[in-house]
Design a protein around this nucleic acid. Structure first.
Lengths: 223, 223
DNA sequence: AGCACTAAAATGTGATCACAAATTTTGGTA
DNA sequence: TACCAAAATTTGTGATCACATTTTAGTGCT
């Protein structure tokens, strides 16, 4: 299965080069291909992706406006570096939005959805046991977005996606350096809460999951 | 005072044409210059703003990625039309994020800030009495963003800005058609809550303000 | 060796062009 | 008058070019 499938348009071939470049770069960021602070050049990417600088310009502009990339003061596009303040904001925004998304999805959860979530959680747990970073990131992302998608959100989902994108480079950096060993799996509590349609418990579980997940990153040095 | 000052970079002349165009179009949307469904052409805007199509392309791409504009299935850029589902999502997201922003700002509120908020609320009330749509929209926007800014947020603030941008065209349409007469002013309760640093009351007041404000729009037909 | 300064290469921005696709206009038919 | 097909125009996308600014490499000096 393709990593970060939730982030991709499942059916569509890309209609324009710009769109193709956009998703390619986005995917690369999610996969931790770019390190924080790394500078990206338009011509370089264009050569790498075999197109003219034009589509790359628009794709980078788009990613910059989503804060997945950053514009330096000399107009150079870079992979953003994280600060404690930014991380706190992202954490707070994720809690606010993902709690809302989960609550909204709750009435739509069917038995088969619950089973799918359990399967995804099993993949998360397995990845944790095997210390498989790639698998863990993918499965964890699939788990969360599968849940949120049940409420068929559009606007809120894209906001949440933007927030995940912003933590991806740092997350990969930390995982590469320290591994995923210390991450607890808080999904079981969440699954129980979903099963009993307990809104407050769902919100608590999600808040805990996010704060512990980002906390484990924040605990390490932020370069 | 310039409308929507909160949305503008106060000090800076724009460093690039693209940036200038971006803020000009954005301002036009906030001012209700574009009607929902209206199609925007790159060359037309370029001629109007006296530049080549290039900076316009990037500015529109940026606004599209913020959902302030929309890409039709034929790749034409249009002002988005509203649906009840979208409005509900925007409402929920605004409640989640603006409550968070207000709560985070609360510890930073000084006496002078409170006074400034009272002054802005007075402008809101005056505009409501005089049925001055332009003034009302401006003052209301200033009031909210002045509060949120006290916590010095960046990421969350830009998310909130994006959500306000999305409702601007419909809001102006409704106001033009039905006036602002039926809008209650819920800011006084909010001001009291802020004065006593009562987090729960602040959240309640903001939720009520948002839901009533967007509800008055939603109540009218959504074309 | 280490550092300041200059020259060369690379980069972002904006303009212009070519082309395919979509839109509008036109002209003729029922 | 209403309606449809075809021509003419307009539009978005991608490529290429020019230019000012930035970055990097190279050189000489202490």
């Amino acid at each position: 299965m393709n990593m970060a499938q939730e982030f991709n348009h499942p059916q569509a071939e890309f209609r324009t080069t710009q769109e193709r470049v956009y998703f390619q770069v986005r995917d690369a960021i999610l996969r931790g291909k770019f390190l924080p602070g790394h500078a990206i050049t338009i011509r370089g990417l264009a050569a790498e992706l075999d197109c003219s600088p034009m589509p790359v310009r628009e794709a980078l502009r788009r990613l910059t406006s989503e804060r997945a990339l950053e514009l330096s003061d000399t107009r150079r596009v870079t992979v953003p570096t994280m600060t404690p303040e930014k991380l706190n904001e992202i954490c707070a925004a994720r809690v606010a939005l993902e709690c809302q998304a989960a609550e909204h999805a709750l009435p739509f959860v069917q038995e088969e959805d619950l089973q799918q979530l359990r399967d995804l959680d099993a993949r998360v747990s397995a990845a944790l046991e095997q210390r498989d970073i790639e698998q863990y990131v993918t499965a964890n992302l699939d788990f969360h977005f599968t849940l949120y998608r049940l409420g068929r959100p559009h606007i809120i989902l894209s906001l949440i996606e933007s927030l995940w994108l912003q933590t991806a480079p740092l997350q990969h950096l930390v995982f590469q350096r320290f591994g995923v060993q210390e991450l607890p799996d808080r999904h079981e509590d969440l699954l129980d809460a979903i099963a009993e349609s307990n809104v407050e418990r769902v919100r608590r579980a999600i808040r805990q999951d996010i704060e512990e997940g980002l906390g484990s990153i924040s605990a390490e040095e932020l370069l």
